[in-house]
Design a binder for these strands. Structure first.
Length: 632
DNA sequence: AGCACGCCGACT
DNA sequence: GTCGGCGTGCTC
């Protein structure tokens, strides 16, 4: 046998697994790996795949994770592993597989993905003494089904959720329940605590790093098998995962808006594939992406509470001559009066905070804008201040125009503060209150509540006799391919908050979103929506990958984007469409100008694989940040 | 990401 | 001459 072949066979020799000399290690940096390290004799017995280790890296020391072993490295001089940090491998085999899949699907490094599953304390050089149980018991594996439960907080939905959790726990498997926001954890937590008093562990409300670590350890050691949390709880190291419950699947909060920009639904699907866990999606009106899975018969549907929705009345605003387009139409005013007379409570929705949305000089036309984001500042009457809706920066309102100094500044455009005062004028006998993201609750004596979408927080706590949507078109017209589905979902959700009727003011009464919401005809809405998505090449049919470039100097950012674009063109990537760099929305945020190159491809992984060499080989000017955003 | 190396301008 | 600005490249 030739020597070369003999070496090959010996490299595959399983005995080497017990006597490794070189470890393949990934680190928490946006760099491709793994990196080869020499294993000193004293660590050879200890070090395993999945071990968290301390290694010298470049000029510093870092935390890494062992992802494999090899007998020979092409690097001449290897640095040594300095220490293993835990008594046992901290990453389970499943976590390693799942994070690899995550990294390939979102364009981050394997190391970065792995570190995301750790509490903050363990991303640093902190040793633990984990006492993991033996290998997880092999058990009769149920098919990892996916169930869609339509209906939100109804009795039937809850009994289904509780039943599935009970079955899973009885089967000695773990459960993760995900809610979109912290505000929802209290209510859901109470129900779960009543039913599973000992088992539960809450994530996302930790007060300290220490507490976060303690809870994480309880889960990792298998002492807690039921986890409730927000978005990042999808990474909880639940042992022998049997069920994932995703409440309010359509909520945009399930999408992380910072790199690595993951969506909980898609991460859950990855874990399902690898850990063979069932998924239960709960939603009144899900995303089109989920409905599409439902159509492919990949998901079993349980439809509850669809037929007891209150009537929806569309008010065609083109029939009314109004000074302000968000003002209240005659039918809506009548309905408000009627509800008021009967002592009922109404909710009006207007998704704009503050008093005025534009503050300008009537003499020279100067408009107050945020220097860091470039958008008009919103005037908050309650604080007598201007605020930026994007970066929340606040500033005083100048007494005279800073540009021409000849006139005062005036605020125009309607926000809920303005509506509040207008409503008090129209209904002097009513108690009018306002609700936005800064509000806590609604006073008992309120007759009319004027609110932004933040009022959805209170959905489980209170109902209104009548609900009026003032600016439906603003929601429908957002330049985002998901805006129609979001508008549809909102209408369904708000109807669940109403006891008698929902009114929608619009200038687009024939839009399919409204027309199908009246029924409601879910099938027809999603059929139409998915037809458009297919025609326009949007998810779930094709996938978008945004390459974002941002930096402090507009010309330089554009130049950088142009360079990237040209290099992508030269790379001649098959089956991927891309357009020239364009201004991102917003074009400027927190002092950084933003451009984006939008790519469209059939396969995310394949597209990422083709663009990554281009990105890493392109010169990056200083101060420039380049991000990859899958399915924005 | 984060750091060192290196190549050009303003200064003792 | 040399101190230091940032553009460039590398991390086993």
């Amino acid at each position: 046998m030739p020597a070369r072949m003999r070496r090959n066979t010996s490299a595959r020799n399983p005995r080497l697994k017990t006597m490794p000399h070189i470890a393949k290690i990934v680190v928490d940096l946006p760099v491709a790996g793994p990196f080869d390290y020499h294993i000193p004799k004293n660590l050879q017995a200890d070090i395993k795949v999945g071990s968290r280790v301390y290694v010298p890296f470049h000029t510093r020391y870092r935390i890494g994770c062992v992802v494999g072993f090899k007998a020979k490295s092409s690097f001449r001089r290897l640095k040594p592993v300095l220490a293993t940090l835990d008594a046992q491998p901290i990453f389970s085999e499943e976590t390693m597989k799942f994070t690899k899949e995550f990294a390939e699907s979102y364009g981050c490094s394997w190391g970065e993905a792995m570190m995301m599953t750790l509490p903050k304390a363990l991303r640093k050089k902190k040793a633990t003494s984990l006492t993991l149980g033996g290998a997880p018991k092999a058990m009769a594996q149920k098919a990892a089904e996916m169930i869609f439960c339509q209906g939100v907080s109804g009795e039937q939905s809850w009994s289904l959720i509780i039943r599935r959790i009970t079955e899973t726990l009885n089967n000695d498997q773990g459960v993760i329940v995900l809610v979109p926001e912290v505000a929802m954890m209290t209510g859901v937590g109470q129900v779960l605590e009543q039913n599973f008093p000992k088992a539960i562990c809450l994530l996302g409300k930790e007060t300290s790093e220490r507490e976060e670590l303690e809870r994480w350890q309880l889960i990792r050691e298998g002492k807690t098998r039921l986890v409730l949390g927000t978005r990042s709880a999808i990474f909880a190291p639940v042992m022998n995962l049997g069920l994932l419950v995703i409440c309010e699947e359509e909520n945009p909060a399930f999408k992380q808006e910072q790199t690595p920009f993951y969506h909980v639904r898609d991460v859950a699907l990855m874990r399902r594939k690898i850990e063979k866990a069932a998924i239960l999606f709960v939603s009144a009106a899900p995303t089109a992406e989920l409905w599409s899975l439902l159509q492919k018969a990949k998901i079993k549907a349980e439809i509850f509470a669809e037929n007891n929705l209150v009537p929806l009345q569309v008010i065609d605003m083109t029939n009314y001559k109004l000074r302000e387009k968000t003002a209240i139409s005659v039918p809506l005013q009548n309905a408000l009066t009627e509800t008021l007379v009967r002592g009922g409570r109404s909710l009006l929705l207007l998704n704009r905070r503050g008093f005025g949305t534009i503050t300008h000089c009537s003499n020279c036309g100067f408009v107050m804008t945020c220097e860091k984001c470039g958008v008009n500042l919103t005037f908050l009457f309650s604080r007598k201040q201007l605020t930026c809706r994007l970066c929340n920066a606040e500033r005083e309102i100048p007494s005279i125009c800073p540009s021409c100094t000849k006139s005062y500044l005036r605020s125009e455009g309607v926000g809920i503060e303005k509506m509040e005062s207008e409503l008090s004028r129209i209904f002097p006998q009513a108690q009018v209150v306002r609700f936005d993201r800064e509000s806590r609750d609604i006073p008992k004596q309120a007759n009319i509540v004027i609110a932004t979408q933040a009022v959805k927080r209170l959905r489980d706590q209170l109902a209104f006799d009548m609900i009026g949507v003032l600016d439906f078109d603003a929601q429908l017209n957002r330049s985002d391919f998901r805006s129609t589905q979001q508008a549809f979902s909102w209408l369904i959700q708000f109807r669940q908050m109403a006891r008698e009727k929902v009114f929608v003011q619009t200038r687009l009464p024939d839009n399919y979103c409204l027309q199908t919401a009246i029924g409601p005809d879910f099938q027809r809405f999603y059929d139409t929506e998915l037809k458009f998505r297919r025609e326009l090449g949007f998810p779930p049919f094709r996938h978008l990958i945004n390459i974002g470039v941002r930096g402090p100097k507009e010309e330089l950012v554009f130049e950088q984007a142009q360079v990237l674009f040209e290099r992508l063109q030269q790379a001649k990537i098959n089956e991927v469409d891309f357009a020239e760099p364009q201004a991102d929305t917003p074009a400027k945020l927190r002092g950084k100008y933003r451009f984006v190159i939008v790519l469209k491809g059939k396969s995310v992984k394949q597209t990422l694989r083709s663009i990554q060499p281009v990105l890493s080989s392109s010169p990056r000017k200083s101060g420039m940040v380049i991000t990859v955003h899958v399915d924005p």
